[in-house]
């Protein structure tokens, strides 16, 4: 697998991370190094082994359908740069 500078530009945009043009080559190199490192896993023979979803053999815990949370508006809004009348207020997102 090989990541190109174009891939980096696109991934950065999707993740809303600033990736200056001048650094795209360097970042692509770093990402490729990481991927190469991970590709070592391909050496392990997993034929006939079911894909593992978790390293712990427990069932997904479930909750009952009971309201036990909420009504903490002020806590929820506490870190917001701007809020008004109980709403988060953010820069306009539609044209």
């Amino acid at each position: 697998m090989s990541v190109t500078p174009d891939d980096v530009r696109r991934i950065a945009r999707l993740a809303r991370i600033a990736a200056p043009e001048a650094r795209l080559d360097e970042l692509a190199g770093e990402l490729n190094a990481i991927l190469t490192w991970i590709e070592q896993l391909d050496e392990v023979d997993v034929d006939g082994v079911a894909p593992m979803a978790s390293s712990v053999e427990i069932a997904l815990p479930m909750r009952e359908d009971v309201v036990t949370d909420g009504n903490i508006r002020d806590d929820v809004l506490a870190n917001a740069p701007r809020s008004e009348e109980g709403f988060f207020v953010v820069p306009k997102v539609v044209e």
Partner: peptide
């Protein structure tokens, strides 16, 4: 349902803004 899919906050319609919100 009474509560949300992954949290214990109420799923009821029409409450005051951000009141049916858990962390």
């Amino acid at each position: 349902s009474k509560a949300k899919l992954f949290s214990g906050a109420s799923a009821e319609y029409g409450a005051a803004p951000n009141s049916h919100v858990s962390l």
